[in-house]
């Protein structure tokens, strides 16, 4: 049985105060994973003495357009991502990904910050956020630092978040003209589905119809979501008319296996991942063609 005290922070500074002075503090945000783990006494949950509820910190509930970034407060729920007009305008891929999460009940409580910090291999927001080169702002009593998501994630269910740090803001660099984005998810059913496999793909097709700056990030394919540089390299620099889609499909499957080794699920995932990348690229090519 867990024996802990419940702390409520209504301001960032309150949270930092507790994080600074107390040890073994677990942060509670939307709670869609943590509350289950506490209730079920999950062995995956490390021991803690304090549960710090940050879910009522209003300062962390914002979506703001800045000069170079769209900034999202870490307590923005999945529902808010879906309903927000700035997200719909600048990063509809995030809206699509958020729509595939769980159910309204989960989307109404679960937060973008929680999805990131939880760092599940199947986290639905991570592939698109990585593909969008999102950065996280971590605040501690000593100051703040910023990491790219790729730097922040360190393993399955592991991040570089320090014990006294709070994830406050997700900063997504605005994309210039010509960028395209696509998110696909395969589940075993149509709702309440954990991703069997997903793929976020962001790229730019330039005026010469050449792929530039491709970011290819599968979900549920690797121990934790990460970009696939080999596949990205194989796409970049290719003209839409010259891209050998079948070959890209083979490359992404090989790249996955190079990370994971051969697993029991590899025969399925390698084929399906090929299909997803081909499908995304085809869509981009047809969009570029109609321009």
């Amino acid at each position: 049985m867990y024996n802990y005290d419940f702390l409520t922070a209504l301001k960032i500074e309150d949270a930092l105060y507790y994080l600074d002075r107390l040890e073994k503090v677990k942060i509670l945000a939307g709670g869609t994973d943590l509350i289950v783990n506490i209730h079920k006494k999950s062995s995956r949950l490390p021991h803690f003495d304090y549960l710090l509820d940050i879910s009522n910190i209003e300062e962390l509930k914002f979506i703001a357009l800045k000069k170079q970034f769209l900034e999202i407060g870490s307590l923005i729920t999945h529902t808010q991502l879906i309903e927000d007009t700035l997200i719909a305008k600048y990063f509809p891929i995030l809206k699509f990904a958020a729509q595939t999460i769980g159910s309204p009940q989960i989307r109404n409580r679960g937060t973008i910050g929680g999805n990131i910090v939880n760092a599940s291999p199947a986290a639905d927001l991570l592939p698109p956020l990585i593909a969008l080169k999102a950065r996280v702002e971590l605040v501690s009593p000593g100051g703040k630092r910023e990491l790219t998501l790729t730097e922040f994630l360190s393993g399955p269910y592991q991040t570089k978040l320090q014990e006294n740090e709070l994830l406050t803001t997700i900063k997504i660099p605005l994309l210039n003209e010509g960028y395209l984005a696509n998110f696909q998810k395969i589940g075993r059913r149509k709702s309440l589905a954990i991703a069997r496999l997903s793929l976020a793909l962001v790229t730019r097709i330039d005026s010469e119809n050449i792929f530039q700056d491709s970011r290819i990030v599968p979900g549920s394919a690797t121990p934790y979501p990460q970009s696939f540089p080999v596949t990205e390299g194989a796409v970049n620099g290719k003209r839409t008319t010259d891209l050998n889609l079948e070959e890209i499909g083979e490359i992404i499957a090989k790249e996955m296996i190079s990370i994971t080794g051969k697993r029991w699920s590899t025969p399925y995932k390698s084929k399906a991942l090929s299909a997803l990348v081909i499908r995304a690229l085809k869509e981009f090519i047809s969009k570029a063609g109609t321009k």
Binding site: F6, G31, V36, D53, P104, Q105, N108
Partner: peptide
């Protein structure tokens, strides 16, 4: 908003 009441601690919703 619709929520699953098994995913909310009462202490969170003063």
């Amino acid at each position: 908003k619709a929520v699953a009441s098994c995913l909310v601690f009462t202490a969170q919703i003063d």
